[in-house]
């Protein structure tokens, strides 16, 4: 009984959080050249950023990143958005992340999160999990799973963020 009560208190604590969630700055991830970097490197000069958690073995993740690839140049021209693809592949397939991205002709900024520190810090349970971050580093929208065509919804959000308009479907 006491435990249940305490659990509720914890959940209530979560409920009262009013501050906008921001992207943590000091989590260590790996760049494609093998160097360890802090998540503070995820920057885009005040323009929107899409952070997409994915894995080489995740089919919907690949469908999403391949669909965005077709329109990425346009998105960049129109909104200045940058896509940061964070791979949660572990030692089994981490060495295949770069060949996988090159083979698919992805021009995204790619990082490895082998120890899943960034994944935990961002409360990602399953992949794909996609975030839209505004120029101040605040998470304004997020979504899990992917169905063909949903990249258009994502882009609607990115356009609003680029224009400084509010997002109705705020980060939950």
């Amino acid at each position: 009984m006491k435990r249940i009560l305490l659990t509720l208190v914890c959940l209530a604590l979560a409920g009262i959080a009013t501050a906008q969630n921001t992207v943590p700055q000091n989590v260590t991830i790996k760049a494609m050249d093998g160097t360890s970097v802090q998540t503070s490197v995820i920057q885009n000069d005040g323009k929107p950023i899409i952070i997409s958690f994915w894995a080489t073995w995740c089919k919907p993740c690949n469908r999403e990143l391949n669909a965005i690839k077709e329109v990425y140049e346009n998105w960049q021209k129109e909104t200045g958005v940058k896509l940061v693809a964070v791979s949660i592949d572990d030692a089994r397939s981490a060495t295949r992340v770069k060949p996988h991205a090159d083979g698919n002709e992805w021009d995204y900024e790619i990082y490895l999160d082998q120890n899943q520190d960034f994944k935990r810090a961002m409360n990602v349970v399953n992949v794909p999990h996609t975030f839209v971050v505004n120029g101040k580093g605040e998470i304004v929208w997020q979504h899990t799973s992917y169905v063909d065509g949903q990249e258009e919804e994502l882009y609607e959000v990115v356009k609003k963020v680029a224009a400084g308009e509010p997002i109705e479907e705020a980060a939950e």
Partner: peptide, 15 residues
Amino acid sequence: VNATYSQRGFSANVQ
């Protein structure tokens, strides 16, 4: 041991 070669549109890897 893992060896990789990749370029846009092609990649090969041996482990």
